[in-house]
Design a protein around this nucleic acid. Sequence first.
RNA 1: GCGGCCAUAGUUCAAUGGUAGAACAUUGGUUUGUGGUACCAAGUACCAGGGUCCGAUUCCCUGUGGCCGCCCCA
Length: 475
Amino acid sequence: MAKIIKKVVAKKAAPAKAKKQVKEVKKELEPIALQPLRGMKDILPEDQPYWEQVRRVTERLSRDYGFSRIDTPIVEFSNLFNRSIGEGTDIVEKELYSFVTKGGDKVALRPEMTAGIARAYIQHGMNVLSKPVKLFSAGTVYRYDRPQEGRYREFSQVNFDSFGEQDPILDAQMIQVAARVVQNLGIKAIQIQVNSIGCPVCRKQYKDLLVNYLESKATKLCIDCKRRMEVSPLRVLDCKEDKCSQVAVSAPQSVDHLCEECRVHFKSLLEYLDELDLPYTINPRLVRGLDYYTKTVFEIWSGSEEGRKSSLGGGGRYDGLVKMIGGEATPAIGFAFGVERIILEMKRVQAKPYRAPKPKVFLAQLGDLAKKKSLRLFSELEKNGILVAESFGRGSLKSQLRVANRLGVEMTLILGQKEALDKTVIIKNMISGEQETASAEKLIDLVKKKLKTDNVVVYHDHNHVAEPSQEQEQT
RNA sequence: GCGGCCAUAGUUCAAUGGUAGAACAUUGGUUUGUGGUACCAAGUACCAGGGUCCGAUUCCCUGUGGCCGCCCCA
């Protein structure tokens, strides 16, 4: 009695004091912002099935196509990115998370993965390996821009690169892998956009030609494009302004001005794609934002011909990159997908996420002795490969059965005071409601046997289950 | 980096210049060791800081964050 009174008094008095203290502490210390940084977000348990599905599909495909996994640091020296991606690009110019370390190093968070992977390729002498050297990677990348749906400052990419082979058949196979990634994830309506932006030689010639043309039409361009004309004339072709598109329509196209080598390369790529039955669209206006691309560039868009389209991922050939950052000349090609965008699209088209196996057995306990024993019983079941759910913190059998019911288990094992003393366990069939008492010794085998035979019953009764789980509703 | 819209319980949304309600979710209960439904009950919220005002969650400003458009891209 005295104890209870003390408790009540303590309970009443405590919150008021605690609140005051909290307030005082808050004033002295900087309050913690209960939110992540702008453009960053938590990936909550409810979303994990989608992430797990992406992980499984990409890992499986990368293995099937002969890619080895590589993981490189998220932080690298800034000049790696400046040099490879290009000083003038938006990614480097405005979106790079760069800072100086305590030791004075100029570093940056990676805005994409290929630069770091190319660095690792050179550093570890992978050029001596049998070509092509195919590398797969997955992780977060960082770009400091204005967040929107499907566009974050911290986001995840799955990245495929292939070093050391210049044959256009590699280009075709890479595009095939890219298409299979999204298709295997249940995104059926996609567009493959391809283009060739040539090699440094013919690209320069083409650029001059384009600038000439644009200058002749300069009065018809928007303000931004007049600026772009000098900085990166290729981007003018991509401008969404009406008047610029009109100019772009009759602009010279890079595919018409490729050198012989690039032209043949592109031509045979298209032949390979035809052979693969991969429907593609040649998009002469497809220009990617990284300077290191040569020849083939491509993107995978979601959606069909009309309607909203967004780029799920893209890539291209980068024959000059490895040499650019200090290795021997090495042809290469790669692509990356944005995982958040893929998941967004999976949800849009109601693609199936990964379904984790769910426990079919619930273990309920009642009374002190049973509670103690149930802890061991749980691990015995787990060791025998039986997935078990429990709610040991709950007291009443009723509330435990409620949880069991909600989880949709096939059977509940009930261990009460009486059973604990008798060394028995009650097995309750959650579909029929029937119960039987089994000896603790034989329990594991009995449960195993029942799970096997009960499967039939379960399928039989499947439509009868009162409440579909949340996951089922989602799919 | 530029422009616009928005910000209330765990979630989706209300109302209001006098400190806030619902639904769903969660937890407990409807007597003793048994689930669903129903019923009852409980807890939890005005993004932060300034200003106007007797008084602000409400009006204004700034910050922070989300979303949309541009830019760019994944």
